[in-house]
């Protein structure tokens, strides 16, 4: 690779410039949010948002934490949902994935299609809502947020493909040792799944952390809401913004509502963004094996 040809030089130069610009393009809205949250309300209203704070102020954060009951409650709820949902989901998905890739499992194609079919056809919003609320009684129940995100056909598909790359001999050797299928899965297969678990786990964690839709549909009389729905309410309901700062000695109407919204956005998003560096190592290899070898 030492002999650089001219086309490669051009390609490389363009690559550096384009990727660099695209990375900045991805970053700007985040910078704008963060700097907005650290600005004074006044400067935002008069001069607009910018990528660096024009008049540094931590007022919005002070206010967000002045009576943090609602915010902290949302954090606790979201963290619980994310941790429980991700672990349970991972277990169920990998268990299903393992069974579905076993070529000696005569129902595997049928069950795979049974699962895949749900991406093609659905009952729709109204019937699902009625089923969930009228028959399952999940209205105003956190399970309405927790359960539907546990599994998805795409994640099962991803996991199945990944496990496929594990030599069948491992299963065979387990059988020879007299282990049952479930034992083989738990003690022989699961330990080899690290990159896949990291990859699928990241997707699951993201979907739990970013959940707002089911919360919007099913939760209405709760003290605490999942973080993103909490954010939704802060952004869209002037009244809730007021409630979330009740106790802080600020005259209603003098609330720095714009900076407060941005501070809440930063607080609601921060933790999940910091998760990525920890799983990045596994993530790329997980994607390589799972998604690519369809």
């Amino acid at each position: 690779m030492k002999h650089q040809d001219s086309s490669m030089v051009v390609i490389k130069t363009i690559s550096y410039i384009f990727i660099g610009l695209f990375a900045i393009f991805c970053l700007i809205p985040f910078l704008m949010m963060v700097s907005g949250s650290f600005s004074s309300e006044e400067v935002i209203i008069t001069k607009g948002l910018w990528i660096l704070p024009r008049q540094f102020s931590t007022e919005a954060y002070k206010l967000a934490f002045a009576s943090p009951k609602l915010l902290l409650g949302s954090y606790a709820l979201t963290i619980t949902l994310t941790v429980c949902g991700t672990s349970l989901g991972l277990f169920l998905i990998s268990m299903t994935g393992y069974a579905l890739q076993r070529r000696d499992f005569f129902l595997r194609n049928k069950i795979s299609f049974f699962i895949y079919f749900t991406t093609l056809f659905s009952g729709g919003l109204a019937p699902t809502y009625l089923w969930m609320s009228k028959y399952l009684h999940l209205k105003d129940n956190y399970l309405a947020v927790f359960l539907p995100l546990l599994m998805s056909p795409w994640l099962i598909f991803l996991m199945k493909n990944f496990i496929k790359s594990i030599p069948f001999e491992i299963t065979e050797s387990g059988k020879i040792d007299g282990a049952g299928d479930f034992r083989i899965f738990v003690s022989l297969i699961l330990p080899t799944l690290k990159p896949a678990l990291a990859t699928v786990g990241l997707f699951l964690a993201l979907s739990y952390w970013n959940e707002w839709y089911n919360a919007m549909l099913y939760l209405s009389n709760k003290s605490y809401y999942p973080l993103q729905y909490f954010l939704y309410r802060i952004i869209n309901m002037a009244n809730y913004l007021k409630q979330s700062t009740a106790g802080a000695q600020v005259t209603v109407g003098n609330l720095p509502s714009n900076t407060l919204k941005m501070a809440t956005a930063v607080l609601a998003t921060g933790p999940i963004v910091f998760l990525y560096p920890f799983v990045q190592k596994y993530f790329i290899s997980g994607m390589t094996i799972g998604a690519v070898k369809g």
């Binding site: 695209f22 991805c26 985040f30 970013n210 707002w212 993103q228 939704y232 609601a268 963004v273």
Partner: peptide
């Protein structure tokens, strides 16, 4: 670094 930055927007909710 660029991969991380490119991936960043995928982490946020539709609300945001």
């Amino acid at each position: 670094v660029s991969q991380t930055l490119l991936f960043l927007p995928y982490f946020i909710s539709a609300v945001l």
